[in-house]
Design a binder for these strands. Structure first.
Length: 206
DNA sequence: TGCCAGGCCCTCTTTAGGGCCTT
């Protein structure tokens, strides 16, 4: 089920692990039947100074990271946390490349697949003004009173958007539940073909 | 040497360009 997933978010030193960027914070929530049943949050020391831009963007300072556990230690714990769950992130391609890069450094891996709340939102919330996480939180009427660009808060907000998205799909296509496979198909289907794809699923089994 | 993300998605498209989204 797409409501039994781990929703995660990384804060990082920049945009690309291929350019030497590292993770500095991981936040995640585990959903069971659409309820948050567990959380994970940790700062991690990337072994390099972060830029003033990242300090301002995230509110995470070099002083905070100096006292944090190293990436290897945090990511090993996080790998245990995610287990075999499927994973969701907002713009999942970004978080997946950092997860893969950090786990590769400690010779760990995971079995779950990624779903993307950004791609799915573009196909479901057709009249949203934009698809950034903050915009979608407001668009879906989700309560928000924390700080965007911190990992756990963004993961919690992504979870709210994700659950609204699943509810919207269920209502729209009169389905009892949405499988993770359905979301993956949705993410790969061109926007203009989504209604046809979902209608086929509805006639068969979603 | 000099450069430096990468993928989705739309459109004045497909022999391409540019905005969005993530930090």
């Amino acid at each position: 089920m797409a409501s039994n997933v781990i929703i995660l978010d990384f804060e990082t030193t920049g945009l690309s692990p291929n350019m030497g960027d590292r993770a500095i914070e991981i936040g995640a929530v585990r959903l069971e039947q659409g309820q948050v049943v567990d959380r994970f949050q940790a700062l991690m020391n990337p072994g390099q100074k972060i830029s003033g831009f990242i300090e301002n963007y995230t509110g995470i300072s070099n002083a905070m990271l100096a006292n944090a556990a190293p990436c290897a230690e945090v990511m090993a714990d996080f790998c245990d946390f995610i287990g075999d769950y499927n994973l969701v992130a907002h713009n999942a391609a970004f978080d997946r490349k950092f997860l893969d890069a950090e786990l590769a450094r400690i010779s760990r891996g995971y079995n779950g697949s990624f779903g993307c709340s950004l791609l799915a939102s573009r196909r479901v919330f057709l009249d949203a003004p934009a698809y950034s996480l903050a915009t979608l939180v407001e668009y879906t009427g989700s309560h928000s009173d924390g700080q965007f660009h911190r990992a756990l808060y963004d993961a919690e907000m992504t979870a709210k958007v994700w659950l609204t998205l699943l509810d919207t799909l269920k209502r729209q296509y009169q389905l009892d539940d949405i499988s993770f496979t359905t979301i993956q198909k949705l993410n790969k289907t061109a926007k203009k073909n989504v209604a046809t794809m979902m209608a086929k699923l509805t006639r068969g089994s979603a």
